[in-house]
Design a protein around this nucleic acid. Sequence first.
RNA 1: GGAGAGGUGGCCGAGCGGCUGAAGGCAGCUGCCUGCUAAGCAGUUGAGGGGUGAAUAACUCCUCCCCGGGUUCGAAUCCCGGCCUCUCCGCCA
Length: 426
Amino acid sequence: MLDLKFIRENPDEVKKTLKDRGMEADVDELLCLDEERRELLSRAEELKHCRNTVSDEIGKLKRQEKDASGQIKEMKTASQKIKSLDAKVGDIDKTIRQLALNIPNMPHVSVPVGKSPQDNVEVRRWGEPPKFDFEPLSHRDIADALGIIDFRAASKLSGRGFALYRGLGAKLERALINFMLDLHTTKHGYTEVFPPFMVKRDCMVGTGQLPKLEEDMYRCEADDLFLIPTAEVPITNIHRDEILRAEDLPVYYCSYTACFRREAGSYGKETKGLVRVHQFDKVELVKFVKPETSYQELESLLREAEEVLQQLGLHYRVLSLCTADISFAAAKCYDLEVWAPGERRYLEVSSCSNFSDFQARRAGIRYRPEKGGGAKYVHTLNGSGIALPRTVVALLETYQQKDGSVPIPEVLRPYMGGLDRIEAQN
RNA sequence: GGAGAGGUGGCCGAGCGGCUGAAGGCAGCUGCCUGCUAAGCAGUUGAGGGGUGAAUAACUCCUCCCCGGGUUCGAAUCCCGGCCUCUCCGCCA
């Protein structure tokens, strides 16, 4: 959510942002309501001031056992007026909030202006796509031949869009999780967090999944709990409605969780195999930082996510998303796309965003810049570090051999009991 | 799931329906004092919003004692609903 005061003072900039993002929202109506609200508020406050002073007088009169029935009568009607004014202000507040929630974050000046994902800018590539002297297979065929992922069993259990990892496949998943967590906690200074996978509605609102994306979330109706779509939700909400101490910033958390997404409305080619599933594993990176450092922090967050792919030896590219493609809450966003030779395309495995104070305002996460100073909103950032299934896709497809075996990248071997390749199991 | 208790400022902890935005303590900050040990004395220290204003200066007003309703001229204080925490019992991986 943007600061109302900011919208009031910079309506044209806000409108330009909406245009750049290809979105619509009624800024003028918002401003009009805002003005009306302030006027009503002034009137209500004047009356309240009057009520406060007269009520004091009544108290004094009563203590002296004098008559106060005139004042009481007067205040009775004043109270009614206050009530109706407050109600009006409350209604307008709701509408304003609704309108304000539909206004996206202001993109950073460095974000490319564009109309569609085609206008995203490639920032860099790392490594080379592998060359094969045979026709590379898709991860589904590789995994099937090796017996490490059983899609048939998964759909028997849970329907389409799920995977069941078996044997070395399950071990590989576990190895990847541990490798990533160890990298971020030991080398990049993150604190590991293992949160609940179900959260209350408040949390989903705090990070912005609700109300807009309720259809995409799994919900346990009896308790009104939601399965988390990403660790971003519980982790960001750790400090909801808190004022952090300046000396504790920056705060870095990394977290492995399963993620649950209904992916309502996505069918077709993408839904085969591991590319888009309802439940997947992900290691997430979350930062709470001082505003003046947040763009530096975004760069380091991106590097930290990239390092996972580098150490795994997977070719990838980095995109700076354009105004039309960055998410609603983001001020700037990089996507990390890994090359999948069998799919013959790049797959998004991480999205690293700086939300500036947009998410913090909504979730009430502040810090006190200096002693005696007022509390300010922190800047929040997050990025996957990284999502597992597509990494597995890229890994299997990149390292596949003609004989069907898949060598394991060096860095994962300690996590695989020293094993150096996956071969067909019985 | 059953039976109780409770949620007050950075923390601990008082609080009678009006004199409480909130006693007292701790911690922090600012002075002063002092060679006796992180001692003493005084002052000061919450958040959000509105108005006047060039102002991140100043003044002023409103709101906030878990959240949301209600009673009342007036509610931290009374009533109802919700959320959370704790204790005891039961059940269970």
